[in-house]
Write a protein that binds this DNA or RNA. Structure first.
Length: 154
DNA sequence: GCCAACGTTGGC
DNA sequence: GCCAACGTTGGC
């Protein structure tokens, strides 16, 4: 698709996994509380973009499947809910701080592609994911990286 | 469970 | 505006 971009979203599977997305079919990506990641969600992820669903704090950590953006950035409802762990009392509803996108399930890989495996692929050396100390939970993925990773799956 | 790396907060 | 203290992320 012309102009489609690629991304990687991290989630701890204990909180929300590829199986949860497979069951739900779609979800909105709430709870992101980092400004750089927020900017991507608000400004950059576009309908039709493809997303790698990454399992962090998992055994093994790695890419578990693929999703697709179905709705572009809009205010994260959880920031206004005092009972939600992601509640942000400082966020003004007239000028919200945090944003979500909606994604839909595309596929679950037969096996997670482990982080360890990704590290061995030369074409992926520049990925932020593989950089030491990089914690960004919403990251751009270059097209050549997307292709290289896709070739790792059966 | 440890802890390095990083982002945020707040005193000054 | 600096920077120490603190909280979080996330691999190991």
């Amino acid at each position: 698709m012309m102009g489609r971009n690629y991304w990687l979203l991290k989630s701890e599977p204990e909180a929300y996994s590829i199986d949860d997305l497979s069951r739900d079919k779609s979800t909105y990506w709430d709870g992101v509380r980092n400004y750089q990641a927020r900017n991507f969600l608000r400004d950059s992820l576009k309908k039709g973009d493809r997303v790698f669903f990454y399992h962090s704090n998992a055994e093994p950590p790695g890419i578990a499947g693929i999703a697709e953006v179905t709705k572009e950035g809009y205010p994260d409802p959880s920031q206004f809910d005092p009972k939600d762990v992601h509640y942000d009392a400082k966020s003004d509803p007239r000028d919200p701080t945090w944003f979500v996108v909606e994604i839909k399930f595309v596929k679950k890989f037969r096996e997670v592609i482990p982080l360890e495996r990704l590290k061995k692929v030369p074409a992926l050396a520049q990925m932020p994911l593989l950089r030491r100390g990089q914690r960004l939970s919403v990251q751009p993925v270059a097209e050549k990286e997307w292709k290289a990773i896709s070739e790792l799956t059966p």
